[in-house]
Design a protein around this nucleic acid. Structure first.
Length: 682
DNA sequence: GCCAGATCATAAGT
DNA sequence: CACTTATGATCTGG
């Protein structure tokens, strides 16, 4: 077997000295395939697609350069004209489901929720804090598909295309996927069929042509940046970073590559094999196969991904590498995948695994000059293990012990010694007692609240859904969210107690370039995860006199931004009713104003961005005056460690179309968020 | 009570 | 079409 590798290397030796781009024009284009060549070292190859959605039609070269060749035009087919690149216009979602009906064919009419089919014998559900799962799900129930009736065409007008702005397209695609996934999970759990919502969301994406970058590429994928994180393998398929849903090695087959050899394009090091992960610029990767949990173990063969990697060892083409880590906030041993840029195979050999069978080994070296990816994780891991190792720290705990985890204060930019004095508090203080005359809402659930329990009054208060999943991830942005209160009979482990438990992240307040102090986290934050509350003094706006200076430490609700409203897009598409519920009308402007000038928490350092990664969610649990809820921040997208946290401050003063305008028409401040769609001021 | 391994259904490719 | 690849969630046994 070892000689096979040797042969492959020897056979390719004559070609080696040439860089890939000089080889590229020599690739013949097989019938039925288009090969487009851009500047080195990237080229794009695809079979001609039957569904020439804009993803294929408008596919451009790696940013910022545009695709030079005429090849993309040949993908176009009946593609929409410029400016109308909406894949779903021609594809109503009714075509999307049922994705694949299994044997017991059911129509939407005779669809019965599994909860109604449950056997009486299984009526004693296991209720533990950790394994909260509806008992009695049958295999038959698991084959059911949730019907989706709405057409996507209306909602997806203006859907970003990869050619307009690849980054925006990737973010929108990720947001859509996770919104579909979270809502699918929330709905399925109620019926006891909450399995693999990630795959269900992916099928929906696929059948609506919502996947992007479907052409396999060598080198970077447009819009996917080094350091981007993913919480499911399937998320990387959807944005074209790594096509196989399971296999760790993605490659261009010989036929697709238009040559006599396959080439590896992407690998995922997910901990299933004995890979060497210590270094951040090299990786020793084990080939695939022979490791099945279901069948007998055997020697690895030089085929498929292994063969492609061996070919890449002699071709030296760039290979995207995804590393993985344990998700620190998942109670079910979830993983985080981190895109770490491109590597090249340096060496390959055969080895014997611990189980005695032979495996292929590949040493890959990271291309120099790329931004930090996985190495940032190693850095934050070190700081978490020993906070004193944080360089340029001014204060190791800005909260002076008020938070569960210390808040570091660092300045790597200038000579500022720290923010002006304030008192660190973790909650809000009201100037008058609130809703004392009404009893707190509460449920009678024993142990923990369960999805689908018709007797849980907290679920009823939240429109029949528990708002969070088992990991505390928010399913949807809602006008007002009710967590379980101190009068609820459930335990502190109930999944409906999330934001009330306070901050669980390792934060640091840091000096930004142009925006004063900012906030970021040493931990990864997944979309929907709770970040922090806006703490401070709650002001009564009606009594607020004009001379009360509104400053940078004042939180004021505005109508949620478009981005925050569109966070629910996927969820709305799963509803049988219209998606128009999610308009600004549902989110009334609240009178609550919070000043963090004299007293506050980390939230007072969160800067504005027109392209934010946080949204605020009104949450109630400790009083009954719904005009003055807690203001809780949640992640709108997956946020890698050390990324500045921002939210959209909204348009202050009297934005057009908004009634009940603020009496404090305050001066607009210039915006330095630097995003592509920056409004310029806020 | 915890963890490794078993079990199960699954997507997207060859 | 059969087969491979291995995930993610839960279940089971030591």
């Amino acid at each position: 077997m070892g000689s096979l590798i040797g042969e492959a290397e020897t056979a390719e030796q004559p070609l080696d000295p040439k860089p890939l781009h000089s080889l590229a024009p020599m690739f013949p284009t097989p019938p039925g395939y288009d090969v487009a060549i851009s500047d080195p070292p990237f080229f794009y190859i695809t079979p001609i697609q039957q569904h020439p959605g804009p993803a294929a039609a408008s596919f451009a070269g790696p940013p910022p350069q545009q695709h030079p060749g005429p090849a993309p035009a040949s993908f176009a087919g009946p593609s929409p004209g410029p400016g109308s690149a909406v894949p779903l216009k021609a594809t109503p979602i009714s075509a999307a489901f049922p994705a694949r009906r299994l044997k017991e064919e059911t129509s939407d009419e005779d669809y019965t929720p599994a909860s109604e089919k449950r056997k009486p014998s299984s009526s004693s559900p296991k209720r533990t804090a950790k394994r909260v799962r509806q008992a009695g799900d049958s295999t038959a129930a698991n084959t059911k598909q949730r019907p989706i009736r709405r057409s996507l065409s209306k909602e997806l007008a203006g859907w970003p295309s990869t050619s307009d702005n690849p980054r925006e397209a990737v973010e929108a695609t990720m947001a859509m996927f996770d919104s579909l996934r979270r809502r699918t999970l929330q709905l399925d759990e109620k019926e006891g069929l909450g399995r693999r919502a990630d795959l269900k969301a992916s099928v929906l994406m696929n059948h609506n042509n919502l996947k992007i970058n479907t052409l396999k590429t060598i080198g970077p994928v447009p819009g996917v940046e080094i350091g981007d994180i993913f919480f499911y393998r399937i998320e990387m398929c959807i944005v074209g970073l790594h096509a196989p849903s399971m296999a760790g090695i993605d490659y261009l087959s010989a036929k697709l590559a238009g040559r006599d050899e396959s080439l590896a394009v992407s690998i995922i090091s997910s901990g299933g094999y004995e890979n060497v992960e210590d270094e951040t610029d090299t990786l020793v990767y084990t080939g695939q196969g022979g490791n099945s949990r279901r069948k007998e173990k055997h020697d690895q063969k030089l085929e498929k991904g292994n063969l492609a990697l061996s070919n890449s060892a002699s071709k030296k083409n760039p290979i995207r590498v995804v590393r993985s880590a344990r998700d620190p906030f998942s109670i079910t041993a979830g993983k985080v995948y981190i895109y770490d840029g491109v590597y090249r195979v340096e060496d390959s050999w055969m080895d014997t695994a611990k189980n005695g069978f032979s495996v292929f080994k590949y040493r890959l070296r990271r291309e120099p000059g790329q931004p930090d990816g996985f190495s940032a994780w190693k850095m934050t891991d070190r700081w978490k293990a020993n906070r004193a190792t944080r360089e340029n720290a001014i204060v190791l705990d800005l909260s002076s012990g008020a938070e569960i985890l210390p808040v570091c204060l660092v300045n790597e930019v200038d000579g500022e010694g720290g923010p002006s004095h304030f008192k660190y508090v973790t909650g809000v203080k009201h100037s008058r007692p609130l809703g004392r005359n009404r009893p707190l809402h509460h449920c009678e659930c024993t142990s923990v609240c369960m999805p689908g329990d018709p007797n849980c009054s907290c679920a009823r208060q939240n429109g029949g859904d528990l708002p969070y999943d088992l990991d505390g991830v928010l399913a949807r942005h809602v006008p007002l969210l009710y967590e379980c209160s101190r009068d609820c009979h459930c335990t502190k482990n109930c999944r409906n107690r999330v934001a009330q438990k306070g901050v669980q992240l390792n934060f640091e307040v840091f000096r930004t370039g142009e925006r004063g102090w900012g906030l970021r986290s040493w931990d990864p934050i997944r979309a929907g995860a709770f970040v922090c509350e806006y703490a401070g003094q709650v002001m009564d706006e009606t009594n607020m006199s004009m001379d009360v200076q509104e400053d940078e430490y004042t939180f004021r609700t505005t109508c949620p931004s478009d981005k925050a409203l569109r966070w629910n897009l996927g969820a709305e598409l799963l509803e049988e009713k219209g998606a128009d519920d999610a308009t600004a009308e549902r989110f009334k402007k609240l009178p609550v104003v919070i000043s963090a000038k004299d007293a506050g928490n980390v939230a007072r350092f969160i800067n504005h961005s027109c392209s934010p990664n946080l949204l605020w969610q009104a949450v109630q649990y400790d009083h009954t005056d719904d005009s003055y809820p807690h203001i809780m921040f949640f992640a709108m997208k997956h946020i890698p460690p050390m990324t500045e946290l921002t939210y959209d401050y909204g348009i202050r003063g009297a934005p057009p179309g908004l009634k009940g305008k603020s009496p404090l028409a305050c001066k607009l401040r210039p915006c330095f968020c630097g995003s592509a769609n920056c409004r310029g001021s806020f």
